[in-house]
Nucleic acid binder design. Structure first.
Length: 118
DNA sequence: AAGAAGGCACCAT
DNA sequence: CATGGTGCCTTCT
């Protein structure tokens, strides 16, 4: 089973390698405004990944725990939280979004209202 | 609402 | 280096 190699999370934040595409991805992620959410697909597109929605999810999963990047502002295209509700990360995501003022009803978010970019 | 198919880099063989 | 299975997805039946 994979899922072993986590990032050093040394100085800045994440990034195991200096991949330009990933850099763009992290930048796009960081640009999501407080209190707003973005879908994996949209984020991927913004970062120049084209249809790399799944890849976006994979990469988010590689972020170190203490990351300051707003990984929690990424949900699926239907505005639903894609992380398992019972997982630590899932709970964390819910908590952070709620704290930011994002209304989550039954694990769903109104993208018309909180979706970004508009 | 639920299932199938598309799409793309990752990772283990 | 080639190959096949996989995922924090999307979009189209």
């Amino acid at each position: 089973m994979p899922e072993s190699r986590l990032l050093p999370a040394s100085q800045s934040d994440c990034r195991t390698v200096s991949d330009p595409v990933k850099e763009a991805f992290w930048a796009a992620l960081a640009s999501i405004p407080h209190g707003r959410v973005c879908s994996y697909g949209t984020l991927a597109r913004l970062a120049g990944l084209g249809r790399g929605a799944r890849l976006a999810g994979r990469w988010l999963g590689q972020l170190p725990e203490g990351s300051s990047l707003p990984w929690h502002r990424v949900v699926n295209s239907q505005g639903r939280l894609s992380l398992p509700a019972d997982s630590p990360a899932g709970q964390e995501q819910f908590a952070r979004l709620t704290e930011e003022g994002v209304s989550i009803r039954n694990r769903r978010i109104d993208m018309k209202r909180y979706g970004w970019p508009d």
